[in-house]
């Protein structure tokens, strides 16, 4: 599974990254987490609000921080 966090580096994006990392660790799954900070790439995804989260190239959330538990729910789907 490929998880991407989209955002140009505001504090919210960092918080989301921390939560995603924690969620992946607790679920104990193999996931590659990467940050997308390049604005061209973010726009290519069609996102209008950051931070956003993409799983395997599909945007699942935009414009807010999810808690670890909420991310776990999304990932396990």
């Amino acid at each position: 599974m490929k998880i991407e966090i989209l955002g140009v580096g505001c504090p919210k994006c960092k918080q989301l990254t921390v939560n995603v990392e924690a969620a992946v660790k607790e679920l104990n799954i193999a996931a590659e987490i990467s940050k997308v900070t390049d604005i061209d790439k973010i726009i290519e995804y069609g996102v209008m609000m950051t931070p956003a989260l993409a799983i395997d190239g599909t945007i699942v959330l935009a414009g807010k921080i999810l808690s670890k538990e909420e991310i776990k729910k999304i990932i396990s789907k």
Partner: peptide
């Protein structure tokens, strides 16, 4: 509409 200056660019282009 919710707005944060770090989202200004994607929003503008969108």
């Amino acid at each position: 509409t919710p707005f944060c200056s770090c989202s200004a660019v994607p929003l503008f282009l969108g």
